[in-house]
């Protein structure tokens, strides 16, 4: 499925469950997402991990409503508890089956996102391991001078930004030297297309969501 259409459908779903209070709908979405992930060969271990990740915020939201809510406290507590699971599992149907390269291709080729945004972000994204390493280097360098750099130290962010400025210029020059011209028309090695099938799935998904919200009595 085209990544951009898939993302659009998921965003519609996320927005809609943010404004509805139907526990069974949230649960149904989680079940559907698990089936989808299962069909795509997601490991059980990953699915179990997805159950653990949002547990703490979910309990936090649950207890806040249960103790300090108003009106039907129990209902709202469980709505929020299941809602965050719905967010995480529907999100996982995207992040575990699609990579950021496919998304960038789709946004550039199907939605006319200027190529400098698509490739600029990709260039940065591919530096993630190096960035994680660099944060450690900055912290270690601080420690060598007896400076403890924690997350509220301006120095830590300052040094990170200096590195970012440096790398961004190097990368931009490297890309330009390999023939990347901003705002110039491009040919594509990887093709991304929106098929009729994608629109049908999007339409069915949105209609199905409305049926779930307005038509089916969930009680």
């Amino acid at each position: 499925m085209n990544p951009s259409i898939k993302l659009l459908l998921l965003l519609v779903i996320a927005l809609e469950i943010s404004f509805t209070m139907i526990i069974s709908l949230n649960v149904a979405l989680v079940v559907l997402a698990i089936i989808y992930l299962g069909l795509h060969g997601t490991k059980l271990k990953t699915l179990a991990w997805l159950l653990v990740v949002p547990l703490l915020p979910a309990i936090g939201l649950w207890s806040t409503q249960y103790i300090n809510g108003s009106g039907d406290k129990t209902l709202m507590a469980w709505v929020l508890f299941t809602r965050i699971y719905a967010f995480v599992f529907t999100g996982a149907t995207f992040t575990l089956t699609t990579n950021i390269l496919q998304l960038a291709d789709a946004l550039e080729q199907n939605w006319h996102l200027p190529s400098k945004f698509a490739y600029g972000v990709l260039a940065a994204y591919n530096l993630v391991p190096k960035i994680q390493h660099e944060v450690k280097v900055i912290r270690a360098a601080g420690l060598m001078r007896g400076q403890q750099l924690s997350f509220w130290s301006p120095q830590l962010y300052f040094k990170a930004i200096l590195v970012s400025i440096n790398w961004s210029q190097n990368l931009a020059q490297a890309m330009a030297s390999h023939g990347f011209v901003e705002d110039a028309p491009r040919t594509h090695y990887r093709h991304s297309a929106v098929h009729a099938r994608d629109w049908i799935i999007l339409g069915l998904g949105i209609i199905g969501m409305q049926i779930g919200v307005f038509v089916i009595p969930w009680h």
């Binding site: 200027p114 400098k116 945004f117 490739y119 600029g120 972000v121 260039a123 940065a124 994204y125 530096l127 993630v128 960035i131 994680q132 660099e134 944060v135 997350f151 830590l156 962010y157 990170a160 930004i161 590195v163 970012s164 400025i165 790398w167 961004s168 210029q169 990368l171 931009a172 890309m175 330009a176 990347f180 901003e182 705002d183």
Partner: peptide
């Protein structure tokens, strides 16, 4: 979009990722 250069896009993305990496420690 015209006023953006490629290096701006990369810079802003790098900063986002850097901050994300720092936040993960929080």
């Amino acid at each position: 979009a015209k006023s953006w250069y490629l290096s701006d896009v990369i810079l802003i993305a790098l900063i986002g990722i850097f901050f994300g990496a720092i936040f993960m420690g929080t």
